[in-house]
Amino acid sequence: MTDKSEEHIRIVDVARMAGVSVATVDRVIHNRGKVSERNLRRIREVLDRVDYHPNLVARSLASAREQTLAVIIPAFREGEYWADVDRGIERAAAEAGRFNVRVRKFSFDQYDRTSFERTLTRVRDEHFDGVVIATLFAEMVVEFTRELDEQQIPYVFVDSDIFGSKRLAYFGTSSFDAGVVAARLLTEGMDRQADLVVASIIHRGTGGSNQCRNREEGFSDYLRRVGFRGTVHRASLRLDDDLYNNRVLDALFDANPRIAGAVTFNSTCYILAGYLQRSGREGVKLVGYDIIGRNRDMLLAGTVTALIAQRPEAQGYHGVMALCEHLVGGRRVPRVNNMPIDILLKENIRYYNNNII
């Protein structure tokens, strides 16, 4: 006979006792999705110990009030980096719905500070129980999260972290260390007096994203530590403007014949790769970030030397689920959840699965 106290066992209680997430317990109870043998064994041991029955889940969910999360991410086209993040968000939203948690997405132009400001105004005009934020405009995010702190609304960062904030959690890579990795990949075996190019996209109304700045700091730190003595040139390029980019890069490469390597700190590596391919400039190592279609094609073609990836789908998924589990069951995840810094080469790109969750 079931003890009276056991009648109040909820899915979040099972998750806490087993030391796993609510979503993992849900997958076991409803036999959907993959779960590791270790977690499966731990969950079953708890279920047996408390004589847990799935109908208790239904009753607890039916009595819970609906809660709503706001997710603030850049607008995107299919095939771009943020499309992968969004896939993870959508997967988490489907799971969160079973716990009476609804997800609403708000988008902005990642190259336009004013667009981000308008999006924050839209979010401020409504009430949300939690917020997931892509921290591209760090200064504005800090101001916004102070308001969330005052209202005691939990929030999660994805893509890049802002140290000193009171975020519930962060999911993404260590941007500084990802910059270090790029510098090592680029300069390994290179003459320490060769020149390098740092290419960036001209932004409207902003000095660049928080993540790109952190990556560049790590990149520069590595160059200093290894005594790299070459000149680092900067090239400001435009999206979808090959004529302009050709003029800028022709002038740069013609004036600096010692350029042996180049890097971009966001997902637009394909722009510089396209130039190198069109102009026939061989022998220039190129390192970039993110496994989007155009970057992948340039890696397979041999124009890009290496790409650094950061599991964007997992970032989106875990960012939403961390808030969901916190609101539903009071479960706290570690504050910093660094994704692996994956290094992709021509030889291993076909085996990469960025949605490992």
Rank of each mutant, 00 (worst) to 15 (best):
N337E: 15
R278H: 04
M17Q: 15
R122C: 08
I308T: 06
G330A: 07
A255P: 03
K105Q: 08
E150S: 14
V123W: 02
E217A: 15
N245I: 01
G205A: 03
C212V: 10
D297K: 10
I349D: 04
K34S: 15
F163Q: 14
V28L: 08
S60P: 02
V320P: 07
L168M: 14
I73V: 14
N245L: 07
L136C: 08
E139S: 15
V181C: 03
R234Q: 13
T305P: 02
E188K: 14
S279V: 09
S63I: 11
T173V: 12
D159A: 05
F128W: 13
G274Q: 01
S63G: 15
L252T: 06
S107N: 08
L252W: 00
V50S: 04
M190L: 15
A23H: 09
L307D: 08
C269T: 15
L243G: 03
D149S: 14
V156T: 13
Q277G: 01
R65S: 09
S220K: 10
A309T: 07
M190E: 07
E150D: 14
L286I: 12
G164V: 12
I271K: 01
R229A: 07
I343Q: 12
L300W: 00
T231C: 09
I308M: 04
L327I: 06
I89K: 12
E37V: 15
T173R: 10
V12Q: 15
H326E: 13
D149C: 11
R65D: 11
G205H: 04
H127Y: 10
G19L: 04
S174T: 05
Y52Q: 05
L185T: 03
Y52M: 11
R113V: 07
E147N: 05
E37I: 13
H318E: 15
L223C: 09
R184L: 11
N348G: 02
L185F: 03
R87A: 14
D297C: 05
R350M: 11
N246M: 04
P54F: 06
G288A: 10
A262W: 01
I291D: 12
R294W: 07
D129C: 07
L323Y: 01
D13C: 07
R42S: 03
T187Q: 09
I89E: 06
L223E: 12
Y52S: 08
N355K: 11
Y170W: 12
G205L: 04
R104Y: 04
F253C: 02
I29H: 00
N246S: 11
A314S: 13
T145A: 11
I349N: 05
L272S: 05
C324G: 05
R77V: 06
R335I: 07
R41M: 09
P54L: 12
I133D: 00
L323R: 04
